[in-house]
Nucleic acid binder design. Structure first.
Lengths: 353, 353
DNA sequence: CTGTTAGCGCTTTCAG
DNA sequence: CTGAAAGCGCTAACAG
């Protein structure tokens, strides 16, 4: 008896197979393999050996079902209208760090596309429940209503460059205001007094913070703040190109621009070239992120480096902390950014005019 | 009786709750919700209504357990030594398309880091079994031994830009040899006779194909092929910079270079600038991929566009086909590439010398 | 058309 | 120290 079901070719090897092979009950196998103390060393080893030889792999589904823990964490990358965020290099760096760190803790990453996509507008929350996700990380610009729903649930969340207010949520974020301030300071020290900024999407926390930092440092140094020196972008190259065109058309154009992303800075470089103004001689440019290609523009981009990998790792740790049930979880972590001076900034041509 | 377990606060709503609420058995709920024909419209609707109101979400784990189908597909992005492939822009485009298409079919994506990473060198195969993945897609440069193991299993696989020989595997790939040929043709038509190439990692199928295309077209046009015009790169920018330096140092340097990736082409642009040779006047450059930043280099990069999104979609479809059990699954799909002429190519300065 | 039942692979009391 | 048995949420025969 019992030989009926499993011997047929297809079969995955289950705990029962291991039990049968090692001549013990499934309960014992389970205990042995999960390191319970109440198993004799002898049996434990025998079981372990058989498990290895048979290449036994516990079925996650079964374990999830009984444990109510899946060891899967969901990653939500909301694709902003027309701009799949998955496309933005910044996120990849973060993903790598996240992946590494949770992988080391025995978790895997389930990638959620935008809620609207795919079959039916299933909310993230539903999808998390469906997969019994142990936690979620949110990146990009998720739908506020979705986020709200998630916050009301008891699923641990962490937002990357996102403000999350629920009790079960943490956030990790770069020090955007300090970064922006460093940019302005750098420019000011080069003698620039007319420094403009191209913002990111202002619905977005980092964009607002970067703008704040820009303003604060301007003020701290007694540099003039003008409304027409603030142009709104969307983080992507084209918006940079357009923005610089309008800035250059001003009666009194800026001598320096701080861009809220490298991609926009690249767009600026291009727009400047088109307009015949040379960087850095006639215009200093500074970006934000330090994506891979920043080194390879001409001239190479001066920028504020975000520790993308570190953000990913911090995200993982914030999440694990919550999952492991720390009630005193650190609600927010801020990572420093670093100014990388390359070739797009030069002393102001006319210190005074 | 029965009220005991579920009423307590925490509870997810299960099929049993829905059954109780709508006054039917769980079996009926299951059939109703899964669209079996043998349920009266009346009950089906009542059940559906309750399910919606209670925000019932079936537990994937339970369903996976019984159906032996998880509706999860695994994505393996092997991080080449020192170069996390997740970092290469090319893969993101593919991921987006893949994600979209399988999402539409009701599948989700599980992201596997490199086998080595994380806790223990668990093979991909084990991880797939563990999660009962319905299929796997392989990208980058996975460990051959791993691939071998996967091939021996019965899990449907598809490789992106990868040759997979198992019976349960398909592959989708850009027409790399045609693309390379188009590059050379373009250059030849501009009058270049001394055209070099910088290859990708030759362990990699696309790199070899691109080299082949380069050679073939050279030959077809009666242009000279010289060993010293072939420099080996690794797809990333720095290798391009180094390669162009050595090429420029040749006694008879090339007047044009075909690079097996945009990233390397960017590196070439930089190296050329450093060496004081102007692009495209003194050197024509052509890339491969058409990544986002290709438009924003100076000059903007002439390149061969790969349909990254299309590759992702095709990958998804190849996989779904296999999963749905088509024995006559198309083993390979090839997508065309397209020449995008931008600013890095110009007529050869000296048609003869 | 619907209820009942067995069982997916695993963990965890509870007895021995 | 180990076996037996119940049950996680769900689907799929099988009766009625």
């Amino acid at each position: 008896l019992g030989t009926r079901r499993k011997e047929s070719g297809d079969g995955r090897v289950t705990i029962r197979d291991v039990a049968r092979a090692s001549g013990v009950s499934v309960g014992t196998v389970s205990r042995a393999l999960n390191g319970y103390p109440d198993v004799s060393e002898a049996t434990r080893e025998r079981i372990a050996r058989f498990a290895r030889e048979m290449d036994y792999t516990p079925a996650a589904a079964a374990r999830t079902l009984v444990l109510e823990r899946s060891h899967v964490i969901g990653a939500v990358l909301e694709t902003g209208e027309g701009h799949p965020d998955l496309q933005h290099p910044f996120f990849h760096g973060v993903l790598v760090g996240l992946q590494e760190r949770i992988g080391a803790a025995g978790y895997d990453l389930l990638l959620f596309a935008s809620a609207g996509s795919g079959f039916g507008p299933d909310s993230y929350l539903r999808r998390c429940h469906h997969h019994s996700t142990d936690g979620v990380v949110l990146m990009g610009e998720p739908d506020p209503a979705e986020v709200e729903r998630l916050m009301r649930s008891r699923i641990p969340c962490v937002g990357v460059d996102l403000v999350l207010d629920g009790g079960n949520a943490s956030q990790v974020i770069s020090d955007n205001v300090a970064g922006a301030a460093m940019a302005v300071a750098h420019l000011a020290e080069l003698g620039h007094r007319r420094v403009a900024t191209i913002t990111g999407l202002l619905e977005t926390r980092p964009a607002r913070d970067r703008l704040t930092g820009y303003r604060q440092e301007l003020q701290r140094r007694g540099l003039p703040y003008r409304d027409d020196y603030v142009v709104y972008g969307d983080y992507y190259p084209d918006s940079g190109t357009e923005a610089i065109a309008s800035l250059l058309a001003l009666e009194e154009p800026p001598t320096a621009v701080f861009c809220a992303s490298d991609l926009m800075a690249l767009g600026v470089l291009r727009g400047a070239a088109a307009a015949g103004v040379s960087v850095p001689e006639q215009l200093s440019v500074i970006g934000f992120d330090d994506i891979m290609v920043a080194t390879h523009s001409d001239p190479p981009l001066t920028t504020l480096r975000q520790d993308k990998h570190g953000l990913g790792v911090a995200t993982a740790e914030a999440l694990l902390e919550r999952i492991e049930g720390a009630e005193d979880a650190t609600p927010a972590r801020t990572l420093p950014v670093e100014l990388i001076a390359r070739g797009t900034c030069a002393p102001a041509a006319e210190p005074d005019r």
